[in-house]
């Protein structure tokens, strides 16, 4: 059997959380991972530590302590002004071999996936990608990762019994950030890793990242599916009216009617809005997982047999192209009269 560079007998009872940061702040996905790691290990002897890399990690490392981590390992190096998969893999690899955590978790972001994919091979260990939940057996040290995506709402539980660290990337949005009390005695531990410019794999010629649309933060989501036949104008108007955002299922995204950042579900964004309105959406489980955490779901579909009606609080069997304009008018009238 393929063997990892260290095994369960040498692994420490540690959950190591990879911390992504941008402009001096931790990314939401990392905050969610911190909360989850603390929850998984609470009341036990297990240790949770953050791992943060960059040319200046002071602020985000402090933030991690404020979020309840007792320890943050920081690797600062002048060449790490931005994520570089080659340099970051090298640095993380060294730290992991020193610390020997039983579990190493990352966010399933573009950087997190690039890093995890390389590290897992270098460490000769198992990697469960894009997980939707994690469980940890505190006695055996076994991490159980939940992944969906098999259709029909079936989830698979994955384990790596003989390999360490047990690595998983977790879908952004699935873990909520809990408020926790900061640890007073929290420490930031600097580790030096020798790196030079030749460790960078690529030259970044240009980078442009604008205001990032983050549907997971939206309180109101108006979602359109294939049944909208590419017509998103009315949905935009309704979203505007309610101060929300428009989301979509995969087909309209694949067909180019709407940006991919707006795809909701298994391979899109997992959201937790107060209200989700689904229009012309059949209710495939791949989509439904994305609105699972919504407080209220309203579904509009022309087919009374549509699966979505099993997942909604209020259902309307009708042509969405007719209902939405009528609804927009009714809402306008209502707000008019309430302001009058």
């Amino acid at each position: 059997m393929a063997v990892s560079l260290y095994g369960p007998e040498d692994a420490r009872q540690t959950v190591c959380v990879y911390l992504e940061h941008n402009a001096g702040r931790l990314e939401d996905v990392s905050l969610g991972l911190i909360s989850k790691a603390l929850e998984l290990t609470s009341g036990s002897d297990w240790r949770v530590c953050g791992l943060i890399l960059g040319d200046d990690t002071r602020k985000p490392a402090q933030e991690a302590l404020a979020r309840g981590l007792g320890e943050v390992i920081s690797i600062q190096h002048e060449i790490m002004t931005r994520f570089d998969v080659s340099a970051f893999t090298r640095a993380c690899f060294e730290v992991i071999l020193q610390e020997k955590p039983a579990v190493f978790i990352l966010g399933a972001t573009p950087d997190g996936r690039d890093l995890a994919g390389r590290l897992a091979v270098r460490l000769r260990t198992g990697l469960n990608a894009d997980c939707t939940d994690l469980r940890l057996n505190l006695e055996t040290g076994q991490l159980i990762s939940e992944v969906s995506g098999f259709g029909g709402g079936v989830i698979a539980l994955l384990e790596s019994p003989a390999h360490r660290p047990q690595m998983s990337t977790v879908r952004p949005g699935v873990f909520e950030q809990q408020f926790v009390r900061p640890v007073k005695s929290g420490v930031i531990r600097q580790i030096d890793v020798s790196l030079s410019r030749s460790d960078l794999q690529s030259e970044l010629l240009e980078r442009s990242v604008g205001e990032r649309l983050d549907l997971s933060k939206s309180q109101v989501l108006i979602c359109g599916g294939r049944g909208m036949h590419g017509e998103f104008v009315q949905l935009n108007a309704l979203a505007e009216q309610l101060g929300g955002e428009v989301g979509a299922t995969r087909p309209p995204v694949d067909e180019g009617y709407i940006e991919r950042e707006r795809q909701i579900g298994q391979t899109g964004v997992v959201c937790r809005p107060k209200l989700a309105v689904t229009c012309g959406i059949s209710g495939a489980f791949h989509f439904v997982v994305g609105i699972q955490e919504a407080d209220t779901v309203v579904a509009i579909n022309i087919d009374p047999q549509a699966e979505i009606f099993n997942y909604c609080d209020y259902g309307v069997v009708a042509d969405a192209h007719q209902v939405i304009p009528a609804l927009i008018e009714a809402l306008a009238r209502e707000s008019h009269s309430s302001h009058a």
Binding site: A2, S4, R124, T125, G126, L127, N128, I144, S148, G153, V154, I155, A156, L157, L158, E159, S160, P161, A162, H163, F285, V288, V289, Q292, E293, V297, F309, N310, Y311, C312, D313, Y314, G315, V316, V317
Partner: peptide
């Protein structure tokens, strides 16, 4: 290294389903 140790039906949140 990885094995599938189980398959489960995902829990879905109960909804009112009021038509």
């Amino acid at each position: 290294p990885t094995i599938v140790s189980g398959l489960e039906q995902a829990e879905t949140r109960a909804r009112q389903q009021h038509m």
